[in-house]
């Protein structure tokens, strides 16, 4: 299913849109003053967090809505495809796309001197969380029109931990926000963090991914599937 998911995304021009968005980001970010670009630990997390809201969250929501509108979900529901396979096919394919896009943008804007491993882990966790959140968020909606306004609330929730990240509010306010561990992992790509912190961030990311998957599966089987059958 993963292979087909990637092919579908290509046919729906997700790859083309992502490429155009990446070019726009590269141009815009390179227009920033050199001083601003000199602090990637502060800039990269906010860039990746917001950029993936399109590549992962909105793309995943659009895919589910399209499959529902075309009736394909009903056909998938009477096939041996399990709900988890369906969810992970979307999560992994969009993670691959999001990872590639953000690696290219960051490489062209900030140069090659990063802990690329931590960058990849943080980006991948964000993608997975966004995709599972999208499936859950889109569950009660039958079309993109009814989803757009509520989606603003979701995006606000996703963006909220930046307030703690940039110390606008105390760190503990959003310490348990699901996106905080991957945000800190993105920070770790360009700033050394203590090993114990990295272990905590990786474990926290895995925990939130597991919770998000359970939540997405429940929303899929209890809301999306009955409404699509």
């Amino acid at each position: 299913m993963l292979r087909w998911e990637a092919r579908l995304q290509r046919r729906y021009l997700f790859y083309a849109v992502t490429a155009i968005v990446a070019v726009i980001w590269i141009v815009l970010l390179r227009l920033l003053p050199a001083a601003a670009r000199a602090n990637p630990a502060a800039l990269i997390p906010v860039f990746v967090l917001t950029n993936l809201q399109i590549t992962a969250f909105y793309f995943a929501a659009a895919l589910v809505l399209m499959e529902r509108a075309q009736g394909v979900l009903a056909a998938l529901l009477v096939s041996p495809l399990a709900a988890d396979e369906y969810l992970w096919a979307k999560a992994l394919s969009l993670t691959a796309l999001g990872l590639l896009e953000n690696l290219v943008v960051v490489r062209f804007v900030f140069g090659p001197h990063f802990h690329w491993g931590w960058f990849a882990v943080g980006t991948a966790v964000l993608c997975i969380l966004y995709v599972f959140a999208a499936v859950s968020a889109v569950a009660p909606h039958s079309g993109i029109n009814t989803f757009l306004i509520p989606s603003v609330g979701w995006v606000t929730l996703f963006t909220a931990p930046l307030l703690s990240f940039y110390q606008v509010v105390p760190w503990w306010v959003f310490a348990w926000h699901p996106l905080m561990p991957p945000l800190r992992l993105l920070e770790a790509a360009s700033r050394d963090l203590p090993p114990v912190s990295l272990v905590y961030l990786v474990l926290g990311s895995l925990g939130w991914c597991a919770a998000a998957q359970v939540w997405a599966r429940r929303r899929f089987t209890r809301v999306i599937a009955p409404a699509s059958a």
Binding site: L8, R11, Q70, A75
Partner: peptide, 17 residues
């Protein structure tokens, strides 16, 4: 679903494939 086949009344396919 390995044992049954289901054909719905309305067409339901990936239209871009």
């Amino acid at each position: 679903y390995e044992h049954i086949g289901v054909s719905f009344e309305l067409p339901n396919h990936y239209v871009k494939l």
